[in-house]
Amino acid sequence: MATPAEHRRRPGTSRRDRRGRGMRGRLVPATVPLSRSRAQIFDDLVLDAVEHLEPRWATQLRDVEFAVEDVPPELPSYDSDVLEDGNVPLARLLPGRDGGRGRSTPPRIVVYRRPLEARAYDRDDLADLVHDVVVEQVANLLGLDPDDVDPPGH
């Protein structure tokens, strides 16, 4: 039988961790939904919320960029286009700007992942919260009431 040192020297043999607990590596294959990170799941929730609104507002949302950031940036004061819970920003609407010479910046809605995750009880609650935040920001962008953007029961 090979000693641990000899076993490590042989090419093509599998490696174990120092305490002999087994192979290192992924516990779940990359193709299984369990392998998705919280950030990837959150990105999907934002996309789901946007896709829910697109059939009705496709023209208005055509040039809008949606982004996800982990935490809001530290700014001295937020403007009125920030959706807050207490003093914690949950999302921010950056209206489009004309940069001159035919260049313009499209409107952008930024959703902050960590503050929303901290307020959710479970994944379903997080999905509802993300949806509400996206609807609120789209309503701000369009100058409409959130119930007009996404009517209850729709």
Results as ranks from 00 to 15, higher is better:
residue 2 A to D: 14
residue 2 A to V: 11
residue 5 A to K: 09
residue 6 E to C: 02
residue 6 E to W: 07
residue 7 H to A: 15
residue 7 H to Q: 13
residue 8 R to L: 04
residue 8 R to D: 02
residue 8 R to E: 08
residue 9 R to C: 02
residue 11 P to D: 10
residue 11 P to N: 06
residue 13 T to N: 05
residue 13 T to D: 05
residue 14 S to A: 15
residue 15 R to C: 08
residue 15 R to V: 10
residue 15 R to E: 14
residue 16 R to W: 01
residue 16 R to E: 02
residue 16 R to V: 00
residue 20 G to L: 03
residue 20 G to R: 03
residue 21 R to A: 03
residue 23 M to N: 14
residue 25 G to S: 07
residue 26 R to H: 08
residue 26 R to Y: 08
residue 27 L to A: 04
residue 28 V to L: 09
residue 30 A to N: 07
residue 31 T to L: 12
residue 32 V to N: 14
residue 33 P to W: 04
residue 33 P to D: 11
residue 33 P to Q: 07
residue 33 P to T: 08
residue 33 P to G: 13
residue 34 L to V: 01
residue 35 S to L: 09
residue 35 S to T: 03
residue 35 S to Q: 08
residue 36 R to I: 04
residue 38 R to N: 04
residue 38 R to F: 03
residue 39 A to I: 04
residue 40 Q to Y: 03
residue 40 Q to E: 15
residue 41 I to P: 07
residue 41 I to N: 07
residue 42 F to D: 04
residue 42 F to A: 01
residue 42 F to E: 05
residue 44 D to H: 12
residue 46 V to E: 03
residue 47 L to D: 00
residue 48 D to Q: 14
residue 48 D to E: 15
residue 48 D to N: 14
residue 50 V to A: 01
residue 51 E to W: 10
residue 52 H to F: 00
residue 56 R to K: 13
residue 56 R to G: 08
residue 57 W to L: 06
residue 57 W to C: 08
residue 58 A to I: 10
residue 58 A to N: 12
residue 60 Q to K: 12
residue 60 Q to M: 12
residue 63 D to Y: 01
residue 64 V to M: 09
residue 64 V to Q: 08
residue 67 A to K: 02
residue 68 V to C: 15
residue 70 D to I: 07
residue 70 D to Y: 07
residue 70 D to P: 03
residue 71 V to E: 08
residue 71 V to F: 02
residue 72 P to R: 08
residue 72 P to V: 14
residue 74 E to T: 10
residue 76 P to V: 07
residue 77 S to G: 03
residue 77 S to K: 03
residue 78 Y to V: 10
residue 78 Y to Q: 13
residue 80 S to K: 11
residue 80 S to F: 09
residue 81 D to M: 10
residue 83 L to D: 00
residue 83 L to E: 01
residue 85 D to F: 00
residue 86 G to Y: 12
residue 87 N to E: 15
residue 87 N to D: 14
residue 87 N to W: 13
residue 89 P to F: 03
residue 89 P to V: 03
residue 90 L to K: 05
residue 91 A to K: 02
residue 92 R to I: 09
residue 94 L to E: 15
residue 94 L to G: 10
residue 95 P to A: 13
residue 95 P to N: 13
residue 95 P to D: 12
residue 96 G to M: 07
residue 97 R to L: 11
residue 97 R to S: 13
residue 98 D to H: 15
residue 98 D to Q: 15
residue 100 G to K: 10
residue 104 S to R: 15
residue 105 T to K: 13
residue 106 P to V: 06
residue 108 R to F: 13
residue 108 R to P: 05
residue 109 I to F: 11
residue 111 V to H: 07
residue 113 R to P: 01
residue 114 R to L: 06
residue 114 R to N: 10
residue 116 L to M: 02
residue 116 L to N: 00
residue 119 R to Y: 08
residue 119 R to T: 10
residue 120 A to D: 06
residue 120 A to E: 06
residue 120 A to M: 04
residue 121 Y to K: 14
residue 123 R to C: 11
residue 123 R to D: 14
residue 124 D to I: 12
residue 126 L to H: 00
residue 126 L to C: 05
residue 130 V to D: 01
residue 135 V to I: 15
residue 138 V to P: 04
residue 138 V to T: 02
residue 140 N to A: 14
residue 141 L to R: 06
residue 141 L to H: 06
residue 142 L to G: 09
residue 143 G to P: 04
residue 143 G to M: 00
residue 144 L to Y: 10
residue 145 D to N: 04
residue 147 D to P: 01
residue 147 D to C: 09
residue 149 V to H: 05
residue 149 V to D: 01
residue 149 V to T: 00
residue 150 D to C: 13
residue 152 P to T: 14
residue 153 G to D: 08
